[in-house]
Nucleic acid binder design. Structure first.
Lengths: 351, 351
DNA sequence: TTGTAGGCGTTATCAT
DNA sequence: ATGATAACGCCTACAA
């Protein structure tokens, strides 16, 4: 039995073909095969053609794991998100993935679900798999990721979370400008009792969005009332709870600015349950401009984040970082108010 | 300078620590380290403790890539989806990921976006990265994945797509039973002109959901009218277009059963634009029970798929397949009709 | 209980 | 233009 029969005759007995198999069939050394496969000008064109032909016949697929071992680059990145169930997150992930694929990178996706145990797991698995870089899309960045950084010596890009550092870059929406626009729009419409329903306490985006709201009210000479500030949790359920509380007030707000569209979804629901019509009885503004903002009833006025583009920008920053370039200033992306149907002037009798 | 100073003194100069570094520090061979790290009973407890201590101090993280090269198992799976922007898909992915993590697997996520070029890319990257298995959540499985299978010799689990084969398993919702329930519910409410808005032509789930619809109508002695069958594309936009067409009919339907909730979202919108109230003027049923089905106005009656659980089941099937067990029969998951507010008896004058 | 000696599939550095 | 040979970091016989 000839050497070539050993493989082609016996079939793929020991897994995928390797350059050694090809070398045997082509009667050359595996180094030559390695070169030919990468179109090295050093190897004879005829030989190259023959080798590539054999590779094709064998259905050869180079082993990224073997390559990664020697090159010390896996062309792999890790993406950590709180939960991909949030459409904001999935839109961002799509952008990351597109940019990653365009550059030959594959992405490991990990949902942390805000569970510390899972986050630790994620960190470990990314470290063990030797990802070349990491993108974090999470509303809160704990000390966890910081320690991860120092341990792994791997570039990290944060989305909507600032966290300066040599290997840490960030891409964020201009929260203050965005929410200032939203609140100003409500002021402009004539509202004077404008509520804010935020995310959980302490998250940077929430703090900033509240700040924009505060500035807009202050500029209009309106007081920032503690009773008109509630906190949700970025989910529709959280929005319902917060809105219920607001509507139980002796003097409820005539407009509500929400941390995000998911919260606004719950607010819309709560308003409906309480027999209030939006925007006639109460105005609602969200943040994100998820696809579903165009499909709520009424369609939601919101502050748009170019989510997919932000994902792409994050990946592009990561590529720079991975190629050794310094991180530079955090990228701040402008937000845009999208006025739809959920906002209108307050009813005269509520003023 | 002692050997230990060479590393601890000089710092992590050549990347992450390896078992050789630990061996040097511990004064043992790397095989012993390898064993100790995996708690082999063959090594002296004292030695083990010392080695593990050094490993901890060094922040040692075993290289999954090196391990994968020798074991020929990467503990990695590939997940292909059309687009993670569809909440159905993201819910499924969450289930897959949870089950994967619970079993020490990491997941590569790839969006195909129904783009053939990208699909080819995905296949290649998964092959090169030597994933141990693949889960496909896509409404249409082309010949592409079949050829991939034979090339990679890797187990595959399909979600909502049957495709028998030795290495191919599938987990699917019971489309016929689910849609039969939905259509029967409309029949029961008294509707006689019930429309169906499907997905794109030729997709298995669409064919089956139509079949359930057909059966229910037939059983009720109702004709299946071609004019009442429209096709969308699983997106709200597609739902709008299809619904607009239906409402332009001389004798429009009094109820619409949609391929999925995303389609229903568009249908709800279209109805509103045409001045129709749901469910008073027209009833609407979706399929999936996405989180947003509880937040539409009115809340959507729909057929629930246990999406996250299906993702988990798919991963668990994949684990079996990867451990060498035969695939067995495709798993068929029962669907459940969830009656909310978007369905009601037809208006008497429309009968 | 521990050490030695391959080998996994590449790339890379020498020679030739 | 091509071939030996040595890594990369780990696992695993086989020896001691």
């Amino acid at each position: 039995m000839s050497l070539s029969e050993k493989r082609s005759g016996a079939g793929q007995l020991h897994g995928p073909a390797s350059i050694k198999d090809i070398a045997r069939l082509a009667g050359v050394s595996h180094s030559t095969v390695s070169r030919a496969l990468r179109n090295s000008p050093l190897v004879n064109p005829t030989t190259t053609r023959e080798i590539q032909g054999i590779a094709r016949d064998l259905g050869y697929q180079p082993s990224a794991v073997a390559r990664g071992l020697v090159t010390r680059k896996t062309r792999t990145i890790g993406v950590v998100v709180t939960t991909i169930a949030d459409p904001f997150v999935s839109a961002v992930v799509i952008g990351i993935e597109l940019a990653a694929n365009d550059n030959g990178y594959s992405v490991f996706l990990a949902n942390s679900n805000a569970d510390p145990a899972r986050e630790t797991n994620v960190v470990h698995s990314f470290a063990e798999r030797r990802v070349d870089g990491i993108v974090v899309t999470s509303s809160r960045v704990g000390a966890l990721y910081t320690s991860l950084l120092s341990q792994m010596q791997v570039p990290i890009v944060l989305i909507n979370n600032q966290h300066p550092g040599q290997f840490v870059h960030s891409v964020m929406i201009d929260n203050i400008q965005g929410s200032r626009q939203a609140a100003s729009h409500l002021v402009y419409l004539g509202h004077r009792r404008i509520a804010y329903i935020g995310d959980q306490y302490g998250h940077q985006s929430d703090t900033e969005r509240f700040e924009g709201y505060r500035e807009a009210l202050e500029k209009a000479g309106l007081p920032v009332l503690a009773e008109l500030v509630a906190h949700g949790d970025s989910t529709p359920e959280g929005g319902i709870v917060a809105m219920d509380k607001l509507l139980a007030l002796a003097d409820p707000p005539t407009a509500v600015f929400c941390y995000n569209d998911m919260t606004a979804l719950g607010v819309l629901r709560s308003a409906h349950v309480h027999g209030l019509r939006v925007p006639e009885d109460i105005s609602v503004i969200g943040f994100d401009d998820l696809f579903l903002a165009s499909y709520t009833q009424p369609q939601l006025t919101t502050v748009r984040q170019p989510m997919q583009r932000m994902g792409r920008m994050a990946m592009e920053s990561l590529l720079k970082l991975m190629s050794g370039q310094p991180s530079g200033e955090p990228v701040k992306v402008p937000a845009e108010l999208i006025v739809r149907e959920s906002t209108a002037p307050p009813r005269p009798d509520t003023l």
